[in-house]
């Protein structure tokens, strides 16, 4: 298992290098000169002389390979340059805003898992009866609802009408309930539906039939023979949900005035603050890739077939 984890960790390096190269190439190929963006944000008119000077300060006059090497070697040491707007080191800003976002996304992931699993089990247990219809209807609603709009509906109901919860801002646990609900609704729905389908499929497997023939009770069969196998697709799906939840959080932050990295990134996008956009993307991709690595490890831990195959293949 340790070998498996180590190999998967090493595989992260080429992926992240690839991501950083791709980002770099796209930035340099895109229309719009970073030097002009830099001058605009410094309130300097972009005359040819000023542009040339800015290109030199920003190192844009170097060959692209040299630029990349210099950027990545600073980045590895934690230096992502200075924001064109705030003039502060980008890393400091990112680390300032990121925890609030991760808090929201992490709670949303926890909520998704804790609620979707019982819903999926309930739905499968009462297949084609009213609990199943209820869960499936709920799941269908979930995959179709715009999360930012749901956020406003929740504010309208729970903050403005019932006055139970604060409509926006960050503070105690009361502030987190509505954003977490809005962000996780879709993943929750997908997960519940997936678990239902997976349980029904496993229920028709031969080992389940055998367990029933041995005279085990329905609940015993469900717990030890269906659920364990049926949970594997949920583990895989969790990797995707991390991406969805992170992305959803970035949007939802604007609804609830949540002081996270999403609002910071959107303002950087408006002002075309390239170092910030670059660093923000790299951080979120890294978090996403690491979460998927954890998912793979959990999967291999739960399912020895994967682990042993992977070890045999390498």
């Amino acid at each position: 298992m340790a070998g498996f984890i180590l190999r998967r960790l090493l595989l992260l390096i080429p992926i992240l290098l690839g991501v950083s190269i791709l980002m770099f190439v796209i930035i340099r190929m895109a229309p719009g000169d970073p030097a002009v963006a830099y001058l605009k944000l410094s309130n300097i008119p972009p005359t040819p002389g000023a542009v040339a000077e800015a290109r030199q300060t920003l190192g844009l006059d170097q060959p692209i390979l040299a630029q990349y090497v210099s950027w990545i070697s600073s980045a590895v040491r934690g230096d992502f340059g200075v924001s064109y707007v705030t003039r502060r080191p980008v890393l400091d800003d990112i680390l300032y805003y990121l925890p609030a976002t991760l808090q929201l996304a992490g709670l949303a992931l926890l909520f998704t898992l804790v609620v979707s699993v019982p819903l999926g089990i309930w739905s499968a247990r009462y297949k084609d009866r009213w609990p199943d219809h209820l869960v499936r209807g709920f799941a269908f609603l979930g995959v179709s609802t715009p999360n930012f709009w749901l956020g406003f509906l929740l504010v309208l109901l729970f903050s403005l009408t019932l006055k139970w919860l604060p409509p926006m801002g960050k503070g105690g646990w009361q502030h987190m309930i509505l954003p977490v609900l809005a962000v996780s609704f879709m993943s929750l729905a997908i997960n519940a539906r997936l678990l239902r389908a997976s349980m029904l499929e496993t229920a028709s497997a031969r080992h389940v039939l055998y367990a029933r023939l041995r005279g085990l009770s329905d609940r015993q069969v469900e717990r030890s023979h269906i659920l364990r196998n049926a949970l594997l697709p949920i583990v895989t799906a969790t990797g995707m949900h991390v991406g969805e939840l992170l992305g959803g959080t970035l949007v939802i932050e604007s609804v609830f005035g949540w002081p996270g990295i999403g609002r910071y990134a959107v303002s950087a996008i408006y002002s075309r603050d390239f170092p910030v956009i670059q660093c923000f993307t790299l951080f979120l991709v890294t978090i996403f890739v690491i979460c998927n690595l954890v998912v793979d490890i959990v999967y291999a831990w739960l399912d020895p077939r994967i682990r042993l195959n992977a070890e045999a293949a390498i």
Partner: peptide, 17 residues
């Protein structure tokens, strides 16, 4: 390796809104 929204935000950041 990119979450959808993150890649979209990055590209819009570079290409402009």
């Amino acid at each position: 390796a990119f979450p959808t929204i993150v890649l979209a935000l990055f590209l819009i950041g570079i290409l402009g809104t």
